[in-house]
């Protein structure tokens, strides 16, 4: 159980100093019309590392991680994922990279018209060759077991609670055994107990599968426990960077203001 004020991170130490980054973002800019959302963002994500990105609502966090799988096209800058430059990829290559990058959407994004099982089958449709030699039924059971929801296999998304939906979405993300996972507010809209369960799941995933993760969150308790490193996204750039402890002691007025604002909520 995670308690308030308990400052140490529970994330596994990545010891990343000697390996090449899995994700590199350099000077990325993105505008919608006249509204400039990203103005030169930089980031490196190393193997087996959990990096948390925090920022105000509307600061462009979702846009940033969507750039990593080309759901949003960047205007300028460099985006490298697993050694490939995302903006330059052909469609087949992009699909390959996308299968290596798990994406947990902000509202779970389960397919309403399909059962839990069909939801989990969906990513396997186009990527069966990756999973060669493995039985589809087994993969689905395995994925559901990882999130502790084997009993839900024949339910429809409408029959699930918010927390269960999030777990099923996580199972759907895990089924292709990604090397990197992008979490868009994994605990938003959940009560504290369910949030903790999801946080534990994310930590377990890091331990078991040695994935690297980018995690977007509003929840500072979540950020503290889950992160090896944090980045504050403000004014469209990586405004400040460091561990939770470092940032919480920062003298920078904007960082201070950010922590104060979050604590008052």
């Amino acid at each position: 159980m995670i308690t308030k004020g308990d400052i140490t991170s529970l994330a596994m130490d990545p010891a990343h100093t000697n390996s090449a980054p899995i994700i590199t973002i350099r000077g990325v800019t993105k505008s919608f019309g006249t509204h400039q959302v990203l103005r030169g963002f930089n980031l490196d994500l190393y193997p087996n590392e959990n990096v948390v990105i925090v920022g105000k609502s509307g600061s462009g966090k979702s846009v940033l991680i969507k750039c990593l799988v080309r759901l949003v096209e960047v205007d300028e800058g460099e985006v490298q994922v697993l050694g490939k430059s995302i903006p330059d990829l052909q469609h087949d290559e992009l699909d390959e990279i996308r299968a290596d990058v798990g994406f947990l959407f902000q509202g779970s994004a389960l397919y309403d018209s399909m059962t839990v099982k069909e939801n989990l089958q969906f990513p396997l449709r186009r990527h069966s060759e990756r999973m060669k030699g493995q039985d589809e039924e087994e993969l689905i059971h395995e994925a559901l077991k990882n999130v502790g929801l084997e009993s839900a296999i024949d339910l429809m998304p409408a029959e699930l609670s918010g927390g269960m939906k999030r777990r099923i979405a996580l199972a759907r993300t895990l089924i292709l055994q990604p090397k990197v996972i992008l979490y868009d507010e994994p605990t938003s809209g959940l009560d504290p107990i369910t949030s903790n369960e999801i946080i534990q799941l994310i930590l377990n995933i890091q331990r078991t599968f040695h994935t690297a993760s980018l995690i977007i969150t509003h929840d500072m308790d979540c950020a503290r426990v889950i992160s090896n490193r944090m980045i504050i996204l403000q004014d469209g750039i990586n405004y400040a960077e460091g561990t939770y402890e470092e940032l919480s002691k920062s003298k920078d007025p904007k960082v201070k203001a950010f922590f104060k604002e979050v604590q008052n909520r």
Binding site: K66, V69, R98, Q106, G107, Y111, R125, R126, L176
Partner: peptide, 20 residues
């Protein structure tokens, strides 16, 4: 309505990234 709600709940994005 069906496609609209799939769009705003990011189900269409989820399909896109899962290779379909």
């Amino acid at each position: 309505a069906e496609l609209g709600s799939m769009k705003v709940t990011e189900q269409i994005d989820a399909m896109e990234v899962s290779g379909t």
